[in-house]
Design a protein around this nucleic acid. Structure first.
Lengths: 343, 343
DNA sequence: GTTAGCACTCTAGTCAGATGAGTGCTAACC
DNA sequence: GGTTAGCACTCATCTGACTAGAGTGCTAAC
């Protein structure tokens, strides 16, 4: 348990280090207006904080920098939670005032705004298609053996996939099936589509349609979850401006990881559908390359279910307060906007 | 005009520099098996080549490196044009053997293969939608005031766009128009769509349809060239492995430029529909950030018209021979595949 | 409990000298 | 005349010594 003064000093050190990126010494803390103690006193407390694991010393005659445990404490107990800073609010409001009428556009644009505002890397996870439902299905023949399957979801997203059509299936048959599918399966959540395909249509189709087996296979692949979640990255090169990453090798590992979609997906997928804000510091990200990075994530949702997430990746020495504030506002407003569109 | 021996020496220097990235001295050239002269002789020739502008010297007591003019000469006259190296051919053939039945997937996958094979950055320009034609158009209502416009092209690509529907337009009217459009405008090249919309449908619509003006506006925005060309980047971080870019600042400029879609588009769009291979060295790229980069581009085409391009970006010290070989094979095979699919 | 003072530590920067790769020139060689 | 050996010269890079300065830890005084 930290004393009030220790908390104050830890707070001051993290604040200083966040802006300067240099180890902070007792003298500079003492000179700040808000801590009324001499360097010597502060040195004593710093030594204690180091023993407790909240601070680290790069070498004997340098100042202290926060350890991961120190950041964790800072984030959990000390972050000045100014959820509504005026300047930022303005930019975000402007963003939502713009007329963008496709969900995808909004997400993409939001990623850009975020990385520009924060000067970190933003990673947005597109709306989780699985929680939306079918609005319309269509199969457009391209030539004798291929067709394009088009799925329009309740949020207006369009997914398409090319499928091959086995010979012997007539156009009129296909049309019949597609009509049937549209009449029976509209408004069914996408993740239930394949199972309901059999339970709802199976019987009826078997009666009316001659190439039942083959057609079923076609539909099966057409509805296949090609609805992979899309990841929108923006400002990846902002990483290069951080002094801790001026070494090319370190930054290469990070950028390489950012190109690995599956890994990012895993990182951003909210732990258990929860909607809170998460901060993962250093190795809490479970990746060597991110050992000196922090990832802050929030979610946006529809009907109380998390649809996707917003994340900001930066060095562990990150402006937590500001980023968390921005992320909070943006996730809330995104949620509100979705609710308004698709209520 | 260079003598045979000068060409040989220039060739040796470029070759050496490409693999070593260090200024090459007269001694190391002399020791190569293929040049049977003493260092002194080679030094004389090198001095001449420097006077002619083909070589540069970082400082007096260093070896020589090729100048941009030197690279240009190398590319134009000396590249060992081994258009069919076995190892590479194998990988590419394997790639085309994979069953990928959507153009987009092929392009995306090709970008990855290319960057992996070359260890440079690959930039692919998706099929130029403007040169394909309309196969099917559809307008799907989402709610009272919005709809999704879906355009399927002759190459099986699906473009979609959300449009807002002015009040007072009935569903049946819209259906009528869409049917008319499909019957009259199928197989029209996309870039002519908007003009033909008026010339072909204008009269008839004015006769049958009540909200002519408003509907026309809707169709106009629906057919708007949102068919932006897609750019597929892969291996952007490979730039970081090149010794000449171990300085973070330089590489940041390059990566930033790579995120600027319009700039890339301009760079990759083939000069005049020509289908040859282009090599742009250093400042020939017209961008400060690419001053130390070379961009090699080739095109793939359908019906003799260039549909899109494939590009490899690397340092000016690039394995021109290998990359040009690979690019040549890939562009030819892509063209062949497209011809086979959509003949 | 707090603070001033002081010796101590360690990094980063600077500077001189050594090293060595590579050149340019001259004179000798074939 | 073309080619080559020899040699003086240049210049980047490496090394080690030295210094300045920031910061600490400890002790003793307030």
């Amino acid at each position: 348990m930290l004393t009030e003064r220790q908390r104050m000093i830890l707070n001051a050190i993290v604040d200083d280090y966040i802006t300067s990126a240099e180890p902070v010494g007792s003298r500079s803390i003492s000179k700040r207006g808000d801590v009324g103690y001499s360097p010597a006193t502060i040195r004593n407390e710093m030594a204690d904080l180091e023993d407790l694991g909240y601070l680290e010393q790069p070498h004997t005659s340098a100042g202290r920098i926060p350890s991961h445990k120190g950041y964790r404490y800072y984030v959990d107990h000390l972050v000045p939670w100014n959820s509504a800073e005026s300047a930022e609010m303005g930019t975000i409001r402007e963003f939502f005032a713009e007329k963008l009428n496709a969900t995808e556009q909004v997400i993409q644009h939001a990623a850009m705004i975020l990385s520009n505002m924060t000067n970190y890397t933003s990673i947005l996870l597109g709306p989780e298609v699985f929680h939306t439902s079918l609005r319309h299905f269509q199969l457009l023949p391209l030539d004798d053996n291929t067709a394009v399957a088009i799925i329009v979801t309740s949020t207006g997203q369009v997914e398409n996939k090319t499928v091959s059509i086995p010979p012997g299936i007539s156009l009129s048959e296909m049309e019949k099936v597609v009509n049937l599918l549209n009449s029976k399966l509209v408004n069914v959540p996408l993740y239930k589509l394949k199972s309901q395909l059999y339970s709802e249509l199976g019987e009826e189709m078997q009666r009316h349609i001659s190439h039942y087996e083959e057609l079923m296979k076609v539909l099966d692949t057409a509805l296949e979850s090609d609805h992979e979640q899309r990841i929108y990255l923006s400002g990846a090169t902002n990483m290069l401006t951080q002094p801790e990453f001026k070494d090319v090798d370190k930054v290469k590992n990070i950028l390489d990881l950012l190109e690995e979609t599956p890994t990012l997906l895993k990182m951003l997928t909210p732990a258990s559908g929860g909607t809170g804000m998460q901060v993962r510091i250093g190795m809490e990200n479970k990746h060597e390359a991110f050992a000196n990075c922090s990832l802050i994530t929030a979610t946006y949702s529809l009907d109380g279910k998390a649809l996707g997430s917003i994340g900001i990746l930066g060095p562990t020495r990150m402006e937590y307060a500001r980023v968390m504030g921005i992320l909070g506002i943006l996730s809330r407003d995104l949620t509100a906007m979705l609710a308004h569109w698709y209520k």
